[in-house]
Design a protein around this nucleic acid. Structure first.
Length: 950
RNA sequence: GGGCCUAUAGCUCAGUUUCGGUUAGAGCGCACGCCUGAUAAGCGUGAGGUCGGUGGUUCAAGUCCACCUAGGCCCA
């Protein structure tokens, strides 16, 4: 009986399922998008004359994607999709970084396992295949995330055209004179006869000799550091600076002694000599050197020692004292033996102080014939001989053995040495590269967040010249010819570019260089400008992979029709201030004079729920695939949108569980809107704001304001603001307020009557607002909603032929309500909140159940009563009660279950069960039920039933 | 060891800039109710915070300064 009238209601109707079943649905949606080419449809729906160029930083084609790469790609996808949704054509050309050591390593391991002996071209082919394999794997993984782009035509740094562009940019640096050949110490394996990159070096403990050596210090200026009486005592004793080293074999290549400018040094009279050592280390040294009767003559800061001329302990040459702030007091003497050809810091000191970068060794680590005492000896052989010679000269103060962490070759496990080698560099100064880059950082690029500016600025400010050469196979060759007779390099820029141009037309790109005979490459009649020789060999170094990716502006942004130089945005993790942002800036400033990007956006790292980095050893690594398998890629996308990615972002089971909850809420809200819009045709049924009641007007305006907030948040890349706004919109604005309020009207009133159509008009605005905000983030769900829209709705939202939500460009009006009207309505909502509070104890007692059971009496000051008496406002509807009465302050008797408001001065609310019978159709309680000619229903419902078509 | 960054309810975020100024906010989750016409839904109420720590400036500090702790990125 009670359900007799259910069929006469307009209840929601939709085929949109409550349960998302993302794991199963997402692959279907991806297929659908591929079939209709949704990416292309999205791009084509945006005008070509308003472009937005996000240039993809290429991930390395090795291994599976991880949460960091997923975060990065999803952020890019949100940027691209939101740009299109706002009407800017943003195309996305994904790329991969293919050359370089990690791949060459893996391939080398395979080759070793298979016991093969391959030449350069064969190795390169294996590397190429390896990169392709992982590129394909990653491409599928990225697509699975719902990321849109030209996946069937990505850029790759190993494609012939790309390699040609890279080599050509090198030619440009050669032309301007910025590129040069120079010396630099690198890790060197004497048994493999090769340079090793940092990644190829393994550290483990080894035993080394540890020796303390005195360097004669016969400098007149030294005596001036002593007070007069001390100088007298020292007058007849020879002076020495004392150093410590664990690599005796580098003593022959010593060029200086380094002191820390701020440490205090003691000048000590002991054993007939005057010694300089760091004061703090003196006690340990006294024991070690058995200085029983020592006397400290003076204490001076390291800076006072600068420029004193010590002498090499066995060669007749100076070894000046220089200053360096890497000197420590952990061990040794506080004075550091400096061999610029054999250590990284030593090298930098050498460059800074104009020392010779001296490293007279061959590829096997044997001293050259020119080296007195040690010619032909390798490191192991030279160590005892150096110690022997120092002992003979009387300069060895102590000798021990020490076990410490020492670098070894990853391949042959032998200890490695530092050796100065010939490398190629791009000068930071020659053409003012450093200064121009710093200017661009300060004036021409927007850094988001703003501290990115300072970070990259200090890196560029302090970096040494860019070493662009690697002694490897898998990369773009450094195009140059080396004179066999005098080791001079020929690298004319135009010639380099002409060789680079050939790579474009070779099926394997720069393999052209490796397979070519030098005769076919060298310019006709080339003569060495230095020695007049004509015997040249090809340079066999390759380029640093950062040079490869750093020239993507040339290979991709300038060339692809989807892009335009300079790019609007580069978007990567904050590690790329040193990496890709850095190399791209130098390459572009160096060859184009302008930065390659207008803005640079960085995101943080993905860390676990406690803020710790993910690592295999801690066992806290979460793979994207795990999350996709459990929750779906959509939840991962929602996570990206929810967190503030400018800082490190946390992920954990709890965080994901919360996001699943949020997802369900958003989905259900959309479902409710769909259900209640099933019979709505915007073209025919929309009601003007001017004809709506105050509730509809307020919420229509509120939705438009929320939309404005979200559109702005997208523009400023504050996606977490979009997320919070969208979620609050669903939870509070819609579910807890508007939807709850207008359910009555939607279900009960005349299907085609103005009151119901007005509510639907607001729902229609809500749905469009949601779809617009969801599409870039919750792409799968937005599309699913779009596909469930009834035809008239879809036609109203998109061009008639739009087959995908990404073809939609909603046109909604700006917010329209005057502030005064908003404020007035909000003061009424504040009373509503108090009414809820008042009803709670009555409900707890069981006197009333749902809100509609209640009858409210509101007593308030006249001013507030005026506000409540708003034209056209049905307070019973707004408060969702069956009866509501207002009364003035002059009433003194207490109200039933009275609540005296703490929040609003003078407000009292009484709550009682409403009087009358429950209308079987609308469930309101009314005194006139059954009295309007229909059994069990109120007069309002009787009227509606009367008008129903039979 | 150096440069840059981060720290506000169990979780995700507001509030800090240009102006330091009532009782530090939201949503989720949680607890307790209600509803059964959004139903593996929906509504209501409530309890949760020494604003990482210490010290300083000030009439007044989540907000400004110094130091410390924990964590992250990049270097050494």
């Amino acid at each position: 009986m009670s359900s007799n009238y259910k069929d006469t209601l307009c209840l929601p109707k939709t085929s949109f399922p409550m349960k998302a079943n993302l794991r199963a649905k997402e692959p279907e949606m991806l297929e659908f998008w591929a079939r209709i080419n949704a990416y292309e449809a999205m791009v084509q729906a945006s005008p070509a004359d308003s472009r937005y160029v996000l240039h993809d930083g290429p991930p390395y084609a090795n291994g599976h994607i991880h949460l960091g790469t997923a975060l990065n790609k999803i952020l890019k996808d949100i940027v691209v999709k939101s740009a299109n949704m706002r009407g800017q054509r943003a195309e996305y050309v994904p790329g991969w970084d293919c050359h370089g050591l990690p791949i060459e390593h893996k391939v080398a391991q395979e080759i070793k396992k298979e016991k093969l002996d391959l030449n350069t071209l064969q190795i390169r082919q294996r590397c190429r295949e390896y990169a392709e394999t992982y590129l394909d794997i990653q491409r599928e993984e990225f697509k699975r995330l719902g990321v849109f782009g030209v996946w069937d035509d990505p850029y790759m740094t190993m494609k012939p055209a790309y390699e040609s562009a890279t080599a050509s940019e090198l030619g440009e640096f050669m032309s301007t004179g910025s590129a040069y050949r120079g010396k630099k110490p690198v890790h060197w394996c004497c048994s493999c006869k090769t340079a090793l990159a940092e990644a190829e070096v393994e550290y483990y403990d080894a035993s080394s000799p540890s020796i303390f050596v005195r360097f004669p210090l016969p400098d007149e200026k030294f005596a001036k550091l002593l007070p007069p009486e001390a100088a007298e005592k020292a007058a007849n004793a020879p002076a020495y600076a004392v150093i410590w080293t664990t690599t005796p074999w580098t003593i022959p290549d010593n060029m200086a002694v380094a002191a820390h400018p701020e440490f205090e040094y003691s000048i000590v009279l002991a054993g007939g000599g005057v010694y300089v050592v760091a004061s703090q280390l003196l006690p340990t040294l006294v024991d070690r050197f058995h200085w029983a009767d020592r006397e400290v003559l003076a204490e001076v800061p390291g800076s006072a020692l600068e420029g004193l001329e010590a002498r090499h302990p066995f060669y007749d040459r100076p070894s000046p004292i220089v200053l360096a702030d890497y000197v420590t007091l952990d061990a040794g003497t506080g004075l550091v033996h400096t061999a610029p050809g054999h250590g990284r810091e030593d090298f930098e000191t050498g460059v800074r102080c104009g020392l010779d970068i001296y490293s007279p060794m061959d590829d096997e680590g044997r001293f050259l014939p020119s080296v007195e005492h040690f010619a032909g000896m390798n490191v192991t052989e030279a160590n005892p001989e150096v110690i022997k010679l120092l002992t003979e000269k009387g300069h060895l103060l102590a000798q021990e053995k020490i076990s410490h962490s020492y670098p070894h070759c990853w391949r042959c496990k032998q200890p490695v040495i530092f050796r100065a080698t010939t490398q190629w560099f791009i000068s930071m100064e020659t053409n003012g590269l450093r200064k121009r880059a710093l200017d661009a950082i300060n004036n021409e690029v927007r850094w988001i967040p703003s501290w990115g500016r300072e970070r990259i600025h200090s890196m560029i400010e302090n970096r040494p010249d860019w070493c662009i050469s690697r002694q490897r196979n898998w990369g773009v060759p450094i195009i140059a010819l080396i004179c066999k007779d005098c080791d001079t390099a020929y690298h004319d820029g135009e010639w380099v570019k002409s060789v680079a141009a050939r790579f474009k037309d070779h099926p394997l790109g720069c393999d052209a260089w490796f397979e070519a005979d030098v005769k076919d490459i060298m310019p006709e009649g080339l003569v060495c400008p230095k020695c007049g020789g004509t015997n040249f060999v090809k340079e066999d170094d390759i380029l640093d992979v950062w040079f490869d990716s750093g020239t993507s502006f040339s290979a991709v942004v300038e060339q692809r029709p989807e892009c335009a130089f300079p790019a609007d945005l580069y978007l990567e993790g904050s590690d790329q201030h040193r990496g890709w942002f850095h190399s791209s800036l130098l390459a572009s400033i160096g060859t184009r004079g302008v930065p390659p990007y207008r803005a640079v956006l960085t995101h943080g790292y993905v860390v676990d729920g406690e803020g710790r980095k993910m690592s295999k050893s801690i066992g806290n690594v979460i793979a994207p695939q795990q999350i996709i398998d459990k929750h779906g890629a959509e939840i991962l996308r929602l996570w990206v949108s929810a967190v503030n990615y400018q800082e490190d972002v946390r992920i954990s089971d709890e965080i994901l569980t919360r996001l699943v909850d949020a997802y369900r809420r958003i989905r259900n809200t959309a479902r409710f809107l769909l259900g209640n819009l099933a019979d709505f045709d915007p073209a025919a049924d929309c009601v003007d704001f001017g004809e709506m009641n105050p509730i509809d007007r307020y919420y229509a305006d509120l939705l438009l304001r929320r939309r404005e907030t979200m559109v702005n948040a997208f523009s400023s890349f504050e996606f977490h603001k979009v997320h919070h706004t969208l979620h609050n919109l669903c939870v509070t604005d819609l579910s807890a307020f508007y939807l709850d309020i207008v359910k009555d009207r939607l279900y009960v009133e005349d299907r085609d009557g103005a009151p119901r159509r007005a509510a639907q008009t607001v729902l229609w605005i809500a749905l469009q607002t949601m779809l617009e905000a969801m599409a870039p983030i919750l792409s799968f769900t937005a599309e699913e909603i779009f596909q469930h829209l009834a035809d008239p709705l879809r036609a109203a939202m998109a061009a008639a032929d739009a087959a995908t939500v990404f073809g939609v460009r909603p046109s909604l009006p700006a917010p329209f309500l005057e502030k005064a009207e908003r404020d007035r309505f909000e003061s009424i909502l504040a009373v509503r909140a108090e009414a809820n509070r008042a009803a709670e104890p009555v409900r707890k007692r069981g006197d009333v159940g749902k809100s509609l059971d209640c009858s409210l009496t509101i007593q308030a000051p006249e001013e507030l009563l005026d506000a409540l008496r708003m034209d056209g406002l049905d307070l019973e509807e707004l408060f969702i009660v069956s009866k509501l009465e207002l009364r003035g302050q002059d009433h003194k008797e207490a109200l039933p279950n009275e609540l005296v408001s703490d929040e609003i001065e003078g407000l009292r609310i009484g709550v009682a069960p409403a009087v009358g019978d429950k209308c079987e159709r609308c469930w309101r309680i009314d005194e006139h039920v059954g009295k309007a000619g229909r059994e069990g229903v109120c007069p309002r419902c009787a009227g509606v039933l009367e008008r129903l078509p039979s």
